[in-house]
């Protein structure tokens, strides 16, 4: 076991010895900063609602939203606030933090880049020949590299969190009582802000892990980093459109894309009606395991021949 730990440590050493890794984390921070600046300077930015006019403001907001989506959950939340006399806080660091959850797609991008390169690069550099002639089995090396990818994702997530929080405080200040409103099964409910954050990020991370594993599989199987990164990013971005196209086909519910967006179970906005949370979780797990097994088998069985 300590052997495995050393292998993971080696992978981390190699990863953070590369300038590219630091540049990627730098980009993540810049994106968070950029988002904070855009939100702060946007026309619709409201730092604090006025005691006298806030109900009116919310009604105007709802009317605007209703023009393009009359069933939007924001309208229900606004109505709930007006009925229950709950003045909104305006944008706080909390809100910024969970708004930042869309940046997990940047995070996914970075993780895919790392996952797609971590095995293929060893082949490209020729160092695979040194790595695989040590008393560590290929299986161990495979999983050490995989663990290292997940560790990178976790590190980047922490960076995203810390800097979202930091910029959130700087630009919007703390405030609020730590609760927020959310529509669940057609009803507005009050939930802790941490629940909201964990939920939003957690569901996004499922996607991240699946696509990173996919990139890792291609990297291990075909030893081509560019191909691994390219296909994984492509599939990640076209995924939801594919669901739209195939939604009326009988096999649609078995397709990975249809299941991958788990937020459909919290918002209730489902493309394929008969999907259930359990079904989706099982399907995703099956795909995930298939990716890992294909990668593992090919990595351990294939010859390391010359160029």
């Amino acid at each position: 076991m300590s052997n495995f730990f050393q292998l993971v440590r080696n992978e981390q050493t190699k990863l953070y010895s590369q300038l590219a890794t630091w540049i990627m984390l730098g980009i993540l921070i810049v994106v968070v900063l950029g988002f904070a600046i855009i939100m702060r300077t946007a026309d619709s930015f409201i730092g604090e609602y006025d005691d006298a006019t806030w109900k009116q403001d919310l009604q105007e907001q709802s009317a605007d939203i209703a023009e393009y989506d009359p069933t939007a959950p924001e309208i229900m939340i606004n109505n709930y606030r007006i009925e229950n006399d709950m003045k909104p806080e305006g944008t706080t660091a909390w809100e910024f933090l969970y708004q930042s959850n869309f940046m997990t797609s940047v995070l996914s991008l970075l993780t895919i880049i790392v996952a797609g390169g971590i095995i293929a690069n060893e082949y490209r550099w020729g160092t695979i020949k040194l790595l695989l002639i040590r008393p560590a089995t290929r299986t161990k090396i495979f999983f050490a590299k995989y663990a290292s990818v997940l560790l990178f994702a976790l590190t980047a997530l922490i960076v995203l969190f810390v800097f979202s929080w930091l910029f959130g405080m700087l630009f919007f200040g703390l405030g609020g009582d730590g609760t927020t409103l959310q529509v669940q099964d057609g009803e507005v409910v009050e939930i802790s802000i941490w629940t909201r954050i964990a939920q939003d990020y957690g569901l996004q991370l499922v996607k991240l892990v699946v696509w990173a594993t996919f990139a890792f599989m291609i990297s291990a199987a075909l030893r081509n980093g560019a191909l691994a990164i390219g296909t994984a990013i492509f599939l990640m971005f076209v995924g939801s459109s594919v669901t739209m196209f195939i939604s009326d086909k009988p096999f649609a519910k078995y397709v990975l894309f249809s299941n991958l967006d788990l937020t459909q179970f919290t918002t209730g906005y489902k493309i394929i009606e008969d999907l259930t949370l359990t079904f989706s979780v099982v399907t995703i797990t099956v795909y995930y395991l298939i990716f890992l097994i294909i990668g593992w088998v090919l990595f351990t069985k294939r010859d390391v021949a010359g160029h």
């Binding site: 010895s17 300038l19 550099w125 020729g126 160092t127 020949k129 010359g306």
Partner: peptide
């Protein structure tokens, strides 16, 4: 094996 390829970075 073949060239002495090591981690250049």
């Amino acid at each position: 094996v073949e060239n002495p390829e090591l981690y250049g970075f």
